[in-house]
Write a protein that binds this DNA or RNA. Structure first.
Lengths: 240, 240
DNA sequence: GCGCCACATTGCTGTAGCGCAAACTTCCGC
DNA sequence: GCGGAAGTTTGCGCTACAGCAATGTGGCGC
């Protein structure tokens, strides 16, 4: 049940930690497997633990009152998640589902207060992580406010490439299955529009897609599409 | 130049602090006035300080490459802002403009590391605040993904009522000027749609609006509108 | 290897909300 | 009290995208 600190000491959560202190923190955790499709915790459930993803991928999604899902983010290995109580919540604000078989470390809630008192760095590092996610979220708000669906899909796919991309000679794949529906829930579009957009990209040779799979063939072209300012030409003409 | 700790000791930032320790933290700050329309800091500027808003209201907005503004949030008195460096940034991610004459406390960047080392509670409290904002931002992403413009405007206005509402016998006002343009930038709509929506509400007696001013006459009715699930009737029919 | 199910595609229709232009209103400085 | 600037309203045309239905397709269990 003991975890080798060398596996996790380099993670942001333990930045600045000596191996021995890292060890102490790890002693309080226990690891568990979460099978693909299973939840680590559910939205609304009382907070009982916080987590570190050792291996696999987790999708954090919020359910609206109307019953629609919105994917808040994908968690990659090495990241903490479910830190609800560190930010003062008593119930999880979202559901965390493993999108592939995953291995996680789990600390009981009680450990948080004790560990952060003992190791203030833990709180500081968590603050950095949460702050980074706040940036992400704000960026996404900006995207949703100002960009069209095609650009948002491009951004979403590129972000996944950066975060969980696996390069091959055919392009950049994502190492977990990702459906059209998933992209729709990430971008605030419908599955239909997503499908049409991807079909179009495929025709133009930007991607090579299939069931729950999008191979990125021309990352630069997609990036150009994502950053393009609509009516840029018109502006240029206006200026000249 | 010294600030009375009794004024700020009750704020979330100082939760759990003894008056004397609060005092120590305050000694490092200096207060300054920011006139209406002036910026406390600008997006992209190098981080030089972090802030606490003592009095007034601040608008944090991001500018897109295309030149559109998106209002990230309004900061009310008692809140910290510009904590970029606590979350590991070297440049401010947004611009902070005073929407009315404001008074702020400012700590030089160097103070952060020293103070949090000395008072770990400071980091813990900041983590709570940043975490709360992460929740807000995620909620907003959900809204933008699933709700129509009218609902988003309703939510935005209600949030401002909760945050900075001033009750009178005629309804709930906001104690700083708020234009149609501002609401558009908060909700990802155009000024035209906002104007039309407000006109409609006014006709229905929900609000009483004017130039940079929206008096909320029927908060409950607006709340109902904000929470309404579209096609709820259809669903009900389907179920019966 | 067959059949089923989940996932994906595509055509068609409808509409919320954008974009622009023109007119109107409120406020403020002089 | 006048003039102008900033903010707001409103009409009209247009389009991006949603919503729905029908059809296609890849993969897995048996």
């Amino acid at each position: 049940m003991s975890i080798d600190s060398s596996l996790v000491a380099h993670l942001p959560l333990f930045a600045g930690f000596a191996p021995e202190t890292c060890e102490i923190v790890l002693r309080e955790a226990h690891s568990l497997r979460v099978a693909k499709g299973k939840a680590a915790f559910e939205q609304g459930e009382e907070v009982h633990a916080f987590f570190l993803l050792l291996h696999g991928h987790i999708r954090a999604a919020k359910m609206t009152p109307a019953g629609e899902q919105v994917i808040v983010r994908y968690v990659s290995s090495g990241e903490i998640f479910g830190v609800a109580q560190a930010i003062g919540l008593t119930h999880y604000p979202a559901t965390a589902i493993a999108v592939e078989d995953s291995v996680i470390l789990s600390w009981p809630v009680a450990a948080w207060a004790r560990l952060t008192a003992q190791f203030p760095l833990l709180a500081a590092n968590t603050l950095k992580t949460v702050g980074g996610r706040l940036q992400e979220a704000h960026h996404r708000v900006v995207e949703m406010s100002t960009e069209q669906v095609e650009q948002r899909i491009a951004h979403a796919r590129l972000r996944l490439a950066d975060q969980s991309g696996r390069k091959s000679d055919h392009g950049i794949a994502i190492d977990f299955p990702l459906s059209r529906q998933d992209i729709a829930e990430m971008t605030g579009a419908t599955i239909f529009t997503v499908s049409r957009t991807l079909s179009n990209w495929e025709q133009r040779g930007l991607i090579d897609s299939g069931r729950q799979r999008i191979m990125l063939r021309e990352p630069d072209a997609l990036r150009a599409l994502a950053e393009a300012i609509p009516d840029e030409d018109k502006r240029a003409i206006g200026k000249s």
